[in-house]
Simulated scan of single mutants.
Amino acid sequence: MDIGILGSLAVGERGVSITPTAPKPRQVLALLALHADQVVTVGTLTEELWGAAPPRSARPTLQTYILQLREHIACALRQGEGGGAGQRCAKDVLLTVPGGYLLKGGQGASDLRDFERLAGLGYRAMDAGDYAGAAARLSEALELWSGPALADVHAGVHLATEIRRLEESRLCALDQRIEADLRLGRHRELLAELTVLVSRYPTHESLCGQYMLALHRSGRRGEALNAYRQLRARLVRSLGLEPSAALAKLQRSILVSGPAGAPAPAGMSAAGASAPAGTSAAGRLAPAG
């Protein structure tokens, strides 16, 4: 089973798509695919589809969606490349187990699994001081994302929680990749990307700190200080909070260093916020819009 989650939902068996077009079966498949090789309970699927007040027909309707998914799987097993379809049936791929259902991922491709593996390699490289290796592995991990996770699936309570978790994982990897690039002296190359990111995440302190550092190292000290002022105004206005001590320290370092100076030797996440590799240094995160 090949599973794509980091963008549009794409699930296939033997090279043939089994992704339905109807919204609710897509929700069911998305939740099963996110938890491939794990049991997803009937209660979880019911709450995902209908919330806290499911209709009386919820259970038989869910069973109908499972049957529809199995029809797609059976068709893929018949048509799929490589032969051997007669050795398995749809119930061997999408199992009914006590209390729920289980989708077998097997040895197929999974963009989420690949992302987690590459990001883990990148975090370990950061911890070892191998910034070039970290930047390369984290860039590979981030390239697996073609858009927001499950962008074309309606999200109920459980999928919405999972999507937020995945987005946080992506932001952690992005934060560390930018940190690695800053360590490698790529501040000018980062400016365009960071300009977009601080606009998209206007209260993300780690990104703002990295932006400030990249600006200052590029000879744009005034713009770096202005980025701090803008972030502080947003935090005070929207959350009633002052910037973190780490960000304030970076601002003072830029302020006293003079136009030609260079502040602390790393971005927010490593030198200021002290966030461990693989965790968020954001603290206060609110996407724009």
Results as ranks from 00 to 15, higher is better:
Leu138Thr: 08
Asp111Trp: 08
Gln68Cys: 09
Ala132Ile: 05
Glu71Arg: 15
Lys91Leu: 14
Val39Tyr: 05
Arg113Cys: 03
Glu71Ser: 15
Ala128Thr: 00
Leu112Cys: 09
Asp127Asn: 13
Arg117Glu: 06
Ile73Thr: 02
Pro98Cys: 05
Leu102Pro: 07
Trp50Arg: 06
His35Glu: 12
Thr46His: 05
Gln38Thr: 10
Gly129Pro: 07
Gly105Ala: 07
Leu77Tyr: 06
Arg117Lys: 14
Gly51Ala: 06
Ala58Lys: 08
Leu118Tyr: 04
Leu45Gly: 06
Ala30Thr: 02
Glu71Leu: 08
Val97His: 12
Gly108Met: 00
Met126Trp: 10
Ala132Val: 07
Gln63His: 12
Ala33Met: 07
Ala128Asn: 11
Gln79His: 11
Ala76Gly: 00
Arg88Ser: 03
Val93Asn: 05
Leu121Glu: 14
Gln107Asp: 15
Ile66His: 12
Tyr123Gln: 01
Glu116Ala: 04
Arg124Lys: 12
Cys75Trp: 15
Gly84Asp: 13
Glu140Thr: 04
Val42Gly: 07
Arg70Thr: 09
Ala119Asn: 07
Pro60Ile: 11
Met126Gly: 07
Ala58Ile: 07
Gly108Arg: 03
Leu32Gln: 03
Ala74Pro: 02
His35Val: 01
Cys89Tyr: 07
Arg88Lys: 12
Gln107Cys: 08
Gly82Leu: 09
Asp37Val: 02
Pro55Gly: 07
Glu48Gln: 05
Thr44Met: 05
Arg117Ala: 13
Leu138His: 05
Glu47Met: 09
Glu81Phe: 03
Thr61Met: 00
Leu77Asp: 10
Arg117Cys: 05
Leu67Asn: 15
Arg59Ala: 15
Asp127Gly: 08
Lys104Asp: 00
Glu48Ile: 00
Leu102Gln: 13
Gln68His: 12
Arg59Glu: 14
Leu69His: 03
Met126Leu: 13
Leu62His: 04
Gly43Met: 05
Glu47Lys: 14
Leu67Phe: 15
Glu140Leu: 04
Glu71His: 15
Leu34Cys: 11
Leu31His: 00
Ala134Glu: 03
Tyr65Gly: 06
Arg137Val: 06
Leu121Gly: 09
Pro55Gln: 04
Gln107Thr: 13
Gly83Pro: 02
Gln79Pro: 00
His35Gln: 15
Lys104Asn: 04
Ile66Val: 14
Ser139Pro: 02
Tyr101Asp: 03
Glu47Asp: 14
Glu140His: 11
Gly84Thr: 08
Ala30Val: 07
Ala36Ile: 00
Leu142Val: 04
Ala53Cys: 02
Arg70Pro: 03
Asp114Ala: 13
Thr41Val: 01
Ala136Arg: 04
Gly84Tyr: 10
Leu142Tyr: 00
Ala134Met: 02
Gln68Arg: 14
Ala90Gln: 10
Val93Asp: 02
Leu31Asn: 03
His35Ser: 10
Pro60Trp: 08
Gly122Lys: 06
Ala136Thr: 13
Thr61Val: 01
Thr64Val: 13
Pro98Met: 06
Thr46Cys: 04
Arg70Gln: 08
Leu118Ala: 02
Ala58Pro: 10
Ala132His: 15
Val42Cys: 01
Gly86Tyr: 01
Ile66Gln: 14
Ala85Ile: 00
